[in-house]
Amino acid sequence: MADVTQLIHDYLRHNKKFPHVFCAGCGHGIVLGSLIRSVHALGLPKDDVVLVAGIGCSGRMAVYVDFNTVHTTHGRALTFATGIKMANPRLKVICVMGDGDAMSIGGNHLIHAARRNIGVTALILNNQIYGMTGGQCSSATPQGDISMTTPFGSLEKAFDIVDMCKAAGASYVARGTSFHAIQLDRLISSAIMHPGFSVVEVFSPCPTQYGRKNKFRNAVDMYKWLKSNTVKVETLKDPTQKPDDGRIPIGVFRDVEEPGLEERYFELQRKLMGQNR
């Protein structure tokens, strides 16, 4: 444990005024830890890692880590990430977004990033709520759940982020949780090394804004819930079907090798410039 803590400290910014903004029990910090361990395990130089964040509690994590960090606008992180990746394809570009960020306001950019297969990793921190603005419903809030803007229960269906990204053409799609930290390290590491667009949806509890309103007594309850209400996709008889008992499958849902947009673009450029010589 001490080693892990030391490792994390090696990647935090020390000239930045702490404490951080996350509430006690928030899942977002666990995802940041997992991201740092993954980058470290892969041996990536800090200079080559770009963390591009949206707006939300999730987006705030960028400022704490000693990578190249860009805290962008609500929903648009992937557009900045696309520009950075195309401008300098050597960089490892990782996007951190909330569920509202990625799927509500930024849904259009998400499906287009997937379609283009741009070589960016998208971490979508799904806490099923707008945390930062005080607990309004998002497009990932389950039907019937309570939020500040659905005080009588949400009438709308939630997006399934994995299904959505698969359908849009992402070449690596995975889902993990803040509870299954070891698995999460693995998922994030593979996502970062994957050529083309990779998505990791992370179920990440928000005790403050979601849990309290939806019958979770405390943060611990939420992690317990994640433990008992998820199932490893590889253990399912038919991994393409959702389990009847309502458990959420976690693991890797798609992993195919397809060159990213930037690879195809610069390949074309080399060809064209060869012809022109």
Binding site: V70, T79, F80, T82, G83, M86, A87, Y265, L268
Partner: peptide
């Protein structure tokens, strides 16, 4: 595409176009 390192990309809308343009600028372009 005919210029060394020249990048052209058609985005999904103008919000995305500006986002990508800013990203490229931050990356030194």
């Amino acid at each position: 595409p005919l210029i060394e390192d020249g990048v052209f990309i058609q985005m999904e809308d103008e919000i995305a176009s500006m986002g990508a343009t800013i990203g490229a600028s931050l990356a030194g372009r």
